[in-house]
Design a protein around this nucleic acid. Structure first.
Lengths: 221, 221
DNA sequence: ATTTTAAGTTAGGTATGGCTAAATTAATAC
DNA sequence: GTATTAATTTAGCCATACCTAACTTAAAAT
């Protein structure tokens, strides 16, 4: 099976389908339209094309799925994206709110050589600056321990922040100011109607649920 | 004057016009078509558009010229390209025959931030791995000493290779094998009908004129 | 000066990837 | 079960940036 040449748009569609699939069971045309910031008819059209290329399967009104080939391509794009994010952060001094947009543009144009070079340079990392897993060259995801969102953490526990499920600059900046960054250890003080109360370093904060649900943690031993 | 948003194609047109202008006095539609690997009618069409955007001036059948704005954009793209070439070579271990194609794709998508980051990291370099000058952030070219192509160097002189005027992989690889790389010192042994005879390290070579004219040197003191 | 050739332009067409407005299908509410 | 609402698709359009074929203009050759 030859690897088809795809446009940047097509790569974006596949990547978004993959990411949506990780959350929802089914991926609707609307979901895609929202994520890709295009109107539903454009999605219908593109999905039709990707179907004819055997990269996705589509049961009308039921949802979209990636084929094996489609998934491979999606994961490759994801690998590019996350390697780039980490590279920008580690080697070009980007902060974690700046890396997404740049990676979004670069991911489609870098060569295999470039990918290999930065992967090598960073010693084949498994997670990007947001804690998102980086698939290997063989397109396998690293196994990761069970993570729970901050919203369902039990009171009294100490947890390590392992992943932040947003690319929103304002939220990322807020988290930085609150020291809620990857690897930092927090103690859950309790759940209130307004949000989760927790301690980081010597500070206590009340984190609204909307933000707390973006922060995924692992319980410390 | 606002900076217009350009497509990658448009940036390429401006860049090529600039580069051709450095060699020829006038830039014909054909020259452009050849360099950009498109057919003449496409050039006519695009030049018409760039004219309407006040980025080029075009006297039909006489040639194309960049306006001030057009030239600024061209030089910015050139700066991106050459910074990227050097970056790939210095930080990602690319050899000089591999950098052009990658830079060609990256130059259109990197942000100002990326440009600034790699420029900083390399301490604001003035020349890329082929010896091509890198314009400054202010879009000024570094002043460079007078260079002469190998074809017109005088017998007996010792010269330093300062610039190689090709991106052709095969030629670049050949030059590497012959040690005809930037900074290396050569001695002109004489001109023969078949080419230029010269010495590098302890080896003597006869370089055909077609290749010799691509190699620009500076006379050593 | 006329012919030939080269360079450039015009006309009309293609593919990509968007869009809106209108129609259709499926799901939900009563 | 019919009516309403939400999701999706169809139809038809737009811009970009190419293309070929045919025509025009300018330059060169005799």
């Amino acid at each position: 099976m030859e690897k088809p040449v795809l446009s940047e748009s097509q790569e974006d569609y596949l990547k978004e389908i993959f990411k949506l699939r990780e959350m929802n069971v089914t991926v609707s045309m609307q979901d895609l339209a929202k994520k890709l910031d295009v109107r539903p008819p454009s999605v219908t059209g593109m999905i039709k094309k990707l179907c004819s290329m055997d990269l996705v399967e589509h049961e009308p009104y039921k949802g979209v799925q990636l084929t094996e080939t489609g998934e491979k391509i999606a994961i490759e794009v994801l690998r590019h994206h996350r390697l780039l994010e980490l590279y920008l952060a580690k080697h070009l001094n980007y902060s974690w709110d700046e890396i997404h947009d740049e990676a979004e543009r670069l991911e489609h144009v870098i060569s295999e050589k470039f990918e290999a070079a930065i992967a090598e340079l960073m010693d084949h990392p498994t997670h990007d600056p947001h804690g998102d897993p980086i698939p290997s060259v063989e397109l396998e995801f690293p196994d990761s321990p069970d993570l729970t969102p901050l919203t369902t953490c039990k009171t009294g526990r100490m947890m390590t922040i392992k992943r932040v499920m947003t690319q929103d600059k304002d939220i990322l900046n807020l988290l930085t100011r609150l020291e809620l960054t990857i690897g930092n250890i927090i103690t859950i003080k309790g759940t209130e109607s307004a949000g989760i109360r927790l301690k980081v370093s010597d500070n206590q904060y009340l984190i609204p649920h909307t933000i707390a649900k973006l922060i995924w943690c692992h319980e410390d031993n």
